[in-house]
């Protein structure tokens, strides 16, 4: 029950977090922990792949809000990719596309990080 998983991998100096399942007030601390670990080790080029993310509530959105400033202060970014329409609609309702770069596919976000160098 309440399944939420994060798989982490590196692709061309970019850290990819793959989210799977339901991100709500119960599971949001897991994502928080993942961001904290990346920040601590200065891995701040972060792509969050939402392909298998079935659900997000404001508790999940709040985690993105909590870390974006620290990540950008370290010259990194959090870019989001592969969202279902259902998940995108929630981000959109709160105006998140103004603050975060959202890509259709992970490879576009990875390329954007590497083009910057």
């Amino acid at each position: 029950m309440n399944e939420f998983k994060i798989a982490q991998r590196e692709a061309s100096n970019v850290n990819v977090l793959e989210l799977k399942g339901y991100l709500d007030a119960h599971t949001a601390p897991k994502l928080e922990e993942a961001f904290q670990t990346l920040l601590k080790t200065n891995r701040t080029n972060i792509v969050v792949n939402c392909k298998d993310l079935s659900y997000i509530s404001s508790a999940g959105l709040g985690v993105f809000m909590a870390y974006i400033e620290d990540v950008r202060n370290k010259s990194g970014d959090i870019k989001l990719t592969n969202m279902s329409n259902k998940v995108y609609n929630v981000f959109d309702l709160l105006g998140f596309p103004l603050l975060y770069e959202i890509f259709k596919d992970e490879s576009e976000a990875v390329k954007k990080f590497n083009d910057k160098k």
Partner: peptide
């Protein structure tokens, strides 16, 4: 005001806004 809200990187308080929007 969502624009102001987002630019100040605030967290929390989004729930009530979502409830009203949905």
């Amino acid at each position: 005001d969502m624009k102001e809200y987002l630019s100040s990187y605030r967290r929390g308080g989004l729930g009530v806004y979502l409830m009203k929007s949905l």
